[in-house]
Design a protein around this nucleic acid. Structure first.
Length: 494
RNA sequence: GGCGCGGUACCCAAGUGGUAAGGGAGAGGUCUGCAAAACCUUUAUACGUCGGUUCGAUUCCGACCCGCGCCUCCA
């Protein structure tokens, strides 16, 4: 069964097949690096990451490009306020974004930057002017002439016939032929970053970079273009208009949009005080894996309500999966195979695949894996699991985690890095006791913990329970959770 | 105003024209020197309200109520 994906362009769920052979070419509208990334950003990028990972798991080769917008109005404004150059300003936030994405196990696509493609953009605009799709105004700005592209509105399902009334005309844009015409290139203004180019001095307007860079890297027609739902209009609509006018060919075939999330039931906004960057959340003591899991839990086209409670629940779910994995990896199983378990693992694997094939239904995939966890745990308890079974179960669990990417327990070092950043930035007051508690578990190395556990085991064997309890208490205080099970002592970092 | 999405148990959240996945939380239990953890079991006479279609609707249609999104910078 092929992957079926919702395509914003057709407004339908369609079979996804690459245009060329087995290679998927996709482009993501990446961040504008003017501030630290917030969880809304990361919901989108995690949705894309899930798509990306699943395409690879499905056997496709992948060419995935994402832009970094490193010049725009906000950047110019903020860097001026901060009193640093645009370059220096964006470098800082690009680095932060990439670190945060990595903390969330978001795989990094090939990156392209707007400021590194100024010449290509100027060429592209010149070409549009030649073909009559764009025009220059007296101040040296360039605009796209919407009247020349009748399909305008096909992505956002807007009908622009006779809809010019109500559109505001910016003071700076008094020379536009039509109020809906959008900027391709902005003439220089005093104090703003500006480039020399074959179409004159200035800087690229907000939509041009994605058209130019995506086609530059992926070709005039490519498979998939992704971003947040807010980009449908005007950003992606404008990209389509520019690109298809320039080439006369269909631009992206699939348009993938992630829905906005809510925070505590309301739209996330700075004024409501529910605006969370990833770093804020970590400083409050939330693990990156919990955040990723929660953001991945609700299928990308549904509204996701991001709450503190949800984060706790996600943490518990991840723990359960990790415990299950730990049981399988450390358990002592006899040689052999139980056909019932092999069947369970196989069926679960199919269910997971079917769930992702169904427009990336992550919630269904979770349902499948937890059904397996429950049945397999019961089987372990009853002694029905043998070595080959444990292996089969782990294989299915890994299949799940190749997409979800939450099993590996490396939260502590990631959180440590963010704590270190807070200190370096003079934000140590934002480091909560909750985070400090979690970081404690990072202080002991695996060897140190194992040593302590050997001491504890020895004390228990000698029935010196007071001694063993003392060691256990010490480890607990260090954030190390001890589990004494039939299969032996297991531990993990809290 | 235009276009669109959603309202499922205490919370989060899938899903289906034939009477409801999964997770969390609660309760009970197993294991254990104790504890913790882990594990198991259990928890919706019905899916916003009211009508309609149907042998049968939570699932289709209509109206209404409520929440949310886009139309303007925003992932």
């Amino acid at each position: 069964m092929p992957l079926r994906l919702f395509n914003t362009l057709s407004a339908k769920i369609e079979d996804f097949r690459p245009l060329q052979n087995n290679e998927v070419r996709m482009y993501t509208c990446g961040p504008t690096v003017y501030d630290y990334g917030h969880i809304g950003n990361f919901r989108t990028f995690i949705a894309v990451d899930i798509l990306r990972r699943y395409l690879r798991q499905s056997g496709y080769k992948l060419r995935h490009v994402m832009n970094i917008t490193d010049v725009d109005d906000k950047i110019i404004r903020n860097s001026a306020q901060a009193g640093v150059g645009v370059q220096q300003y964006t470098a800082k936030y690009e680095k932060a974004f990439l670190e945060d994405a990595a903390a969330l196990n978001i795989e990094q696509p090939q990156l392209v930057r707007a400021t590194e493609h100024i010449d290509e953009m100027a060429d592209f605009i010149a070409h549009l002017v030649e073909k009559g799709f764009a025009y220059r105004t007296e101040d040296g700005s360039y605009y796209f002439r919407i009247a020349k592209f009748p399909a305008y509105g096909k992505l956002s399902k807007k009908d622009f016939a006779g809809m010019e009334d109500g559109a505001r005309v910016d003071v700076d844009e008094y020379e536009k032929d039509n109020a809906r015409d959008f900027a391709l290139w902005k003439a220089p203004k005093p104090g703003e970053a500006s480039w020399q180019s074959k179409i004159g001095p200035g800087r690229p307007a907000s939509h041009i970079e994605c058209s130019v860079m995506s086609m530059h890297e992926l070709g005039e027609s490519f498979d998939l273009h992704a971003g947040g739902e807010d980009l449908i209009f005007p950003h992606h609509e404008n990209e389509i208009a520019q690109s298809e006018s320039a080439t006369g060919k269909p631009f992206a075939h699939f348009w993938f949009h992630a829905r906005f999330l809510l925070v505590e039931g309301e739209k996330m906004s700075k004024s409501l005080g529910n605006f969370h960057t990833l770093r804020d959340l970590v400083l409050k003591g939330h693990k990156p894996s919990s955040i990723r899991y929660l953001l991945a839990s609700v299928p990308y086209r549904n509204q996701l309500n991001f709450t503190d409670d949800g984060l706790q629940q996600a943490t518990a779910s991840v723990e359960r999966l990790r415990n299950f994995q730990g049981r399988l990896m450390t358990g002592k199983f006899s040689e052999g195979l139980n056909p019932g378990i092999a069947k369970l693992a196989g069926e679960t694997s199919d269910r997971i695949r079917a769930a992702f094939d169904d427009d990336l239904n992550t919630a269904q995939a979770q349902g499948a894996i937890f059904d397996m966890v429950r049945a397999a745990n019961a089987a372990i308890d009853s002694g029905a699991i043998q070595k080959a079974d444990a292996f089969a179960l782990l294989t299915t669990l890994n299949q799940f985690d190749e997409i979800f990417a939450v099993l590996k327990d490396d939260d502590a070092p990631k959180m440590q890095r963010i704590a270190d950043w807070a200190k370096a930035e003079g934000r140590e007051k934002n480091i909560t006791p909750e985070l400090q508690n979690l970081l404690k578990s990072n202080e002991l190395s695996d060897e140190q913990v194992n040593q302590k556990i050997e001491q504890m085991k020895a004390a228990r064997a000698a029935k010196k329970f007071a001694d063993s309890d003392a060691i256990r208490a010490e480890l607990t205080a260090q954030g190390i959770l001890i589990e004494q099970t039939k299969e032996g002592v297991r531990w993990r970092r809290k």
